[in-house]
Design a protein around this nucleic acid. Sequence first.
DNA 1: GACGATGTTCTAGTTGACTAATACATTGAT
DNA 2: ATCAATGTATTAGTCAACTAGAACATCGTC
Lengths: 136, 136
Amino acid sequence: MSPAPFNSFSFRLDMQSGVPVYRQIMDQIHGAIAASALRAGDQLPTVRQLAVDLSVNPNTVVRAYRELEIRGVLTTQQGIGTFISSKTVAPDEAERQRKLTQLVGELMAKAGAAGYTAEEVATRFLEFMSEQRRKP
Amino acid sequence: MSPAPFNSFSFRLDMQSGVPVYRQIMDQIHGAIAASALRAGDQLPTVRQLAVDLSVNPNTVVRAYRELEIRGVLTTQQGIGTFISSKTVAPDEAERQRKLTQLVGELMAKAGAAGYTAEEVATRFLEFMSEQRRKP
DNA sequence: GACGATGTTCTAGTTGACTAATACATTGAT
DNA sequence: ATCAATGTATTAGTCAACTAGAACATCGTC
């Protein structure tokens, strides 16, 4: 019989958002881990099952799972299933870093659009850093 | 005879960088204006001339010029040429720096609110900078 | 009006990211 | 050995971004 994993967690996709499906899957798994809805050793939906649930191609799910496996978040075992890695000690950290990259990327994009060179931004940034250090 | 504009400014492209050519052109014009190498009223290389110089298709130059025109940086006149917009009277350096400080400040504020330390932001920022400049 | 220089437009080719369709390989239970 | 369930690999289709080729439209000058 089906062990019905994930009964306390369901995926919700937004096909209109423009965000790649595989990335949405990644984000939700990340979120579930961060919220402790998923813990080390928990089995994820099978590739085929999740593909059916989301009305998406299995390969799209595979893509998400593989990316997460590369980052050490998941472990997959052929013929068995996909599980939350036991080494996922710092899932928040990966997510944190990703968001930070997003923030920095936004700054660089805005600055570029406003006509600032990377060097200018760097200079200003370093100045900002040194000022911060004097205050505390 | 050709008025030989731009004799004190030359474009340098990096075809390996992965950065779109049209964007590199935009950035360099932005930079030249910021550095006062180009001022309001100055004529830019003609679409065809710059295309030849850079060994690129005229349409790629057109793309760059058009984007800059939309943003009010350039003005184009069919049959005449392309010029630095008079409205782009280099918002004097003080104003520019103020806006840049604002941008950087926003990043630091958001990052701080999200729980990132200044060091983390700095590290990520430097990584971002080095990625932008990969030259194999 | 004719001409050359300029910007403009239309169409198409190339590439990479993303997703899909299908067949293959491995595991564990019977 | 067989079978069902699982992950894996190969191939291809779709789409947007980017670039290119070629023909068109406008301006100034003669």
